Amino acid sequence: MGFRDFRDFNLAMLGNQAWRFLTKPNSLVSKVYKARYFLNKNYLDSSAGHNPSFVWRSIWEAGDVVKVGVRWVVGSGEMINILGQPWLLDDHNPFITSDSPALANNKVSSIMSMEHRGWDDEILKDLFNDRDQECIRSVPY
């Protein structure tokens, strides 16, 4: 990998484990950590928790590295929260910046139009700012 700094190498290895929590949720390690530290959430929404182990605290702190590069593939959108999860194709800010209360606790699938197999333009115009509308429309459906 060519790391000259041991701290960077360590963060890369911890980030790799965090990536496995996201991509292999049925592995034994993922199930154990999920049961203990992020039972009703995913790794990206987890917290350090009360009295965390040294290993979990280390993996959790590497989450900032993972969050910079991770993106959801939208697909049906049933598993992705509109707010707080990186699903837009913007390299600088993959998160929704609109702050409408109607967006809270809703999934990406709720802004899709099943009839036209695309995004629901009326919902986009009503709830999202111009930047978000443009970013959403650029996401493949």
Rank of each mutant, 00 (worst) to 15 (best):
R4Y: 13
P94C: 14
N81A: 14
F21N: 02
A12Y: 10
K67H: 03
G15A: 09
S109T: 10
L89Q: 13
L89S: 06
I111E: 05
V65C: 08
V65A: 07
L83Y: 05
N16K: 11
S30W: 03
L14C: 12
N105Q: 12
E61V: 03
K31G: 01
L28M: 13
I136Y: 09
H92P: 00
N10R: 15
S110Q: 09
L28K: 00
F54R: 06
S58Q: 05
K34W: 08
S98L: 09
N10Y: 10
I96H: 01
A104T: 11
K24C: 13
L44Y: 08
W87C: 02
R117P: 02
A35I: 07
G118C: 06
L39I: 04
D8Q: 12
R71I: 00
W72M: 03
I123Q: 12
M112H: 09
Y37E: 10
M79A: 12
K41Y: 08
N42M: 07
R137W: 00
D130G: 06
T23C: 11
L88C: 03
S58W: 02
L39W: 09
T97Y: 05
S109E: 12
N93A: 11
H92E: 15
R117A: 14
G69V: 04
E78S: 13
P86C: 04
S27V: 02
W87H: 08
D91S: 15
A18I: 05
S98D: 04
D5G: 01
E122M: 10
A102S: 14
M13R: 02
N93D: 14
R117W: 07
D132Q: 03
S113C: 15
D121N: 07
C135V: 00
E122N: 14
L44F: 06
E78Q: 09
A12P: 01
D121P: 00
V74K: 11
L44K: 04
M1Q: 13
F38V: 03
F9T: 03
N42Q: 08
P25M: 01
N40I: 10
T23H: 04
Q133E: 04
Q85C: 06
S27C: 14
D126R: 15
D121A: 14
P52A: 06
T97L: 14
V70F: 15
E61Q: 15
G15W: 05
R131P: 01
A102D: 12
Y37W: 11
A12C: 13
P52H: 07
L28D: 01
E122Q: 13
G15E: 12
A35W: 02
I59H: 00
R131E: 00
W119D: 03
N42C: 14
K125G: 00
F128Q: 06
I80Y: 03
D126H: 10
K107H: 05
W87P: 01
H116L: 10
S27D: 10
A48Q: 08
D126C: 13
I82G: 02
M114H: 10
W72H: 09
V55H: 10
G84E: 07
G15N: 04
W19I: 03
F95I: 04
V68D: 12
D121C: 02
V139R: 02
Y43F: 15
Y43V: 12
S76W: 05
L28E: 04
I123M: 13
W72E: 05
V68F: 10
V74F: 02
L22C: 11
A35Y: 05
E78D: 03
N51K: 15
I96V: 13
D5H: 08
P86Q: 07
L39Q: 15
K31C: 06
K24H: 12
F21R: 02
E122L: 13
F6T: 07
K31F: 01
L103W: 05
